[in-house]
């Protein structure tokens, strides 16, 4: 069962994303005010969802589990690292797609409102996390420090989420995860958007899995290289 779902992850992801694009570009109607610009609704919110909640959440939870003695393992550290790396990609995509949407609708590429600014700060935090990992060679030290840093950083996520509620922002409020539970997207547009959420979430897990496998191989490789070097030294000594 697990094997089957593992094998299906890639194809199902691609199918979901393809269906989202077909629905988004051809099947769904134009919006009353935004006209064709509304089609970014099927891309930008799902990408932001993955960037802020799914991938950053995965990295934070994995970091907490690493710090908690009972669940401490290098697996948790690797998951946190890989999720954060994927998160950087998605945060950048969030900013780019948002910018593309903002220019024709708001009239500006960028605005220093609370939502946009806090998202940009999160992106810098995620890059800093990667910088912190590169600066430490010792695996346990690196794991511990980056876990602490990830948790410090995660405080920003609820601030981003509620920024549109707490403050007046140029960015619109939530359409799906509203405080009243009301859905603000209608009919087939909602279907395409939710399919986008599923597709991009699956894409995250797919990327995470592949990145994790790569990381395991890289760790194994570095140990093997060390062993080879040691063996070489021994042979030279004889």
């Amino acid at each position: 069962m697990i094997k089957l779902s593992q094998r299906l992850l890639g194809p199902v992801t691609l199918a979901c994303l393809a269906a989202t694009f077909v629905l988004g570009l051809w099947v769904t109607p134009e919006d009353r005010t935004q006209k064709n610009l509304v089609r970014l609704l099927y891309v930008h919110p799902p990408i932001a969802w993955v960037a802020l909640y799914v991938s950053f959440g995965t990295a934070t939870i994995a970091s907490c589990l690493y710090l908690w003695r009972r669940t401490r393992s290098m697996t948790m550290d690797r998951i946190a690292y890989c999720a954060m790396e994927v998160s950087v990609v998605f945060i950048i995509l969030t900013l780019i797609t948002g910018s593309i949407w903002g220019r024709p609708t708001w009239g500006v590429w960028w605005a220093w409102d609370a939502r946009l600014t806090s998202t940009a700060i999160l992106g810098v935090f995620a890059l800093a996390y990667l910088a912190l990992r590169r600066a430490n060679d010792d695996p346990t030290l690196r794991a511990r420090r980056s876990a602490v840093f990830a948790i410090l950083t995660a405080v920003n996520v609820p601030i981003i989420h509620f920024s549109v509620v707490w403050w007046k922002t140029l960015h619109q409020g939530a359409s799906v995860l509203t405080s009243t539970g009301q859905l603000n997207v209608h009919g087939s547009m909602l279907l395409a958007m939710l399919l986008g959420f599923v597709g991009f979430t699956l894409l995250f897990f797919w990327l995470l899995r592949e990145r994790y496998r790569l990381e395991v191989k890289r760790d194994a490789r570095s140990i093997a290289t060390l062993d080879e070097a040691l063996a070489l030294r021994r042979r030279e000594g004889v």
Binding site: E30, K35, V185, H186, G187, M189
Partner: peptide, 18 residues
Amino acid sequence: MVKHTSSYIAAHPGRVTA
């Protein structure tokens, strides 16, 4: 700058059911 709402409603009446 335009501050649009977070509601999305189809442009062509009758095509979508609320």
